[in-house]
C-alpha cells in the first residue's frame, strides 16, 4: 500500500496578472521504503507539489486534489495540531541551501536539541545525548566539538549533514529531500547521497528526492517521475527510464547530458519537440 498517495493535485498561485497554474493534475505515490525521484527543470513544479504536501506554501496558493493521503489518512482534512504532529515527525524535509536552512544565531546543537525536546519530549540531557548520537550517525567528525559550532563555522556539506540529522531525529517514515546536493561540490554530493541511501536502507524510510540532475537520479532512485511545466511527462522504474525512455521530453533530457554527446552538437529539448511534432 502506498505510504503517500496524491491524485490529481493542482496548485494555482494568485498573481497580479491573474492565476498561474504551477502544478497541473499531478499523481504521485510513494511506497514504504521506496526511493522516488521527481525530476524536472526550473518551473516544472517539482518542488511546489511537495511543499503543498508539507503545508509550506504561502496563502496565495490554492491547492486542490482528488486525494491526498498519508498512511490512509487525509492530509487536507487534518486539524492544525494533527498536521503538526505529522509534519516534522513522520514526514520531514531537507532543502537545497543547507547553510540558509539553519538559523545563523544559534549553535547547530541548540537547533537539533530544540527539535528533540519539542517534537519528542526529551529532557535537556537526553536531547544532548541523542543529538551526539545522530551527529555520529550522519558522519559529522568530532561531534562533541561541532555540536557547539554555529552554522557559519561549518562547511556546506557539514551543514547538510546537520539538516539530515535534524530530519531523521524523529525516525520519520518519509523524508523529502529538495535538491539536497545542488549547492555542493561533486565529491561532497557523492558523500551526502551515499549517506541518504544508507539511512534510507537502515531506517527503512521512504525517500522522495527532488532533483534536476539525471546523474543523481541514476545513482539513487527506484522509480522516477519526470515533470515539465507542471505536468507529469513520464513515470517509470529507473532502469526502464534510462534504457527506454518513452516520452520525447525524457529522451531530450537524457541526450542533453554532455556525457551522452555523440557528435559535435548537443541535442536540445526543442529539437525533440520538433521531431515529435509537439
Amino acid at each position: 500500500m502506498a505510504l503517500l498517495n496524491i491524485r490529481n493535485l493542482t496548485v494555482k498561485f494568485a498573481t497580479a496578472t491573474g492565476s498561474f497554474t504551477a502544478v497541473d493534475g499531478i499523481d504521485v505515490h510513494v511506497d514504504r521504503g521506496e526511493v522516488l525521484a521527481i525530476v524536472g527543470e526550473s518551473g516544472s513544479g517539482k518542488s511546489v507539489s511537495m511543499l503543498a504536501v508539507m503545508g509550506l506554501l504561502p496563502d496565495t496558493a490554492t491547492i486542490t486534489a482528488d486525494e491526498m493521503t498519508y498512511d490512509g489518512r487525509d492530509i487536507s482534512k487534518l486539524s492544525k495540531a494533527e498536521r503538526r504532529r505529522l509534519i516534522g515527525r513522520e514526514i520531514t524535509m531537507i532543502f537545497q541551501e543547507p547553510i540558509a536552512s539553519l538559523n545563523p544565531s544559534f549553535t547547530v546543537g541548540f537547533q537539533i536539541e530544540e527539535v528533540l525536546r519539542l517534537n519528542l519530549g526529551l529532557g535537556r540531557k537526553e536531547a544532548h545525548a541523542r543529538a551526539l548520537e545522530l551527529f555520529r550517525a550522519v558522519g559529522i567528525p568530532e561531534p562533541e566539538v561541532k555540536i557547539r559550532a554555529y552554522p557559519h563555522q561549518l562547511s556546506g556539506g557539514q551543514c547538510q549533514r546537520v539538516m539530515i540529522a535534524i530530519a531523521i531525529a524523529s525516525n520519520p517514515r518519509l523524508l523529502i529531500a529538495d535538491e539536497p546536493t545542488t549547492a555542493l561540490d561533486v565529491t561532497i554530493q557523492k558523500q551526502i547521497l551515499d549517506l541518504l541511501m544508507k539511512l534510507q536502507e537502515d531506517y527503512g524510510m521512504a525517500l522522495i528526492l527532488i532533483t534536476h540532475d539525471m546523474g543523481v537520479v541514476a545513482e539513487t532512485a527506484d522509480r522516477v517521475v519526470v515533470q515539465y511545466k507542471g505536468k507529469k511527462m513520464e513515470e517509470a522504474e529507473v532502469l526502464n527510464l534510462f534504457e527506454a525512455p518513452q516520452h520525447p521530453y525524457t529522451r531530450a533530457l537524457l541526450s542533453a547530458l554532455p556525457e551522452h554527446a555523440t557528435g559535435d552538437r548537443l541535442p536540445t529539448v526543442s529539437d525533440f519537440f520538433q521531431q515529435a511534432g509537439a
Binding site: V216, L239, F242
Partner: peptide, 17 residues
C-alpha cells in the same frame, strides 16, 4: 573527482538496482 561524478550508464544502473 571521477569516482564522485554520477554515472548515467545503463549497465551501472542495472547493477545498482
Amino acid at each position: 573527482l571521477f569516482a564522485a561524478t554520477p554515472v548515467t550508464d545503463v549497465e551501472a544502473i542495472r547493477t545498482r538496482v
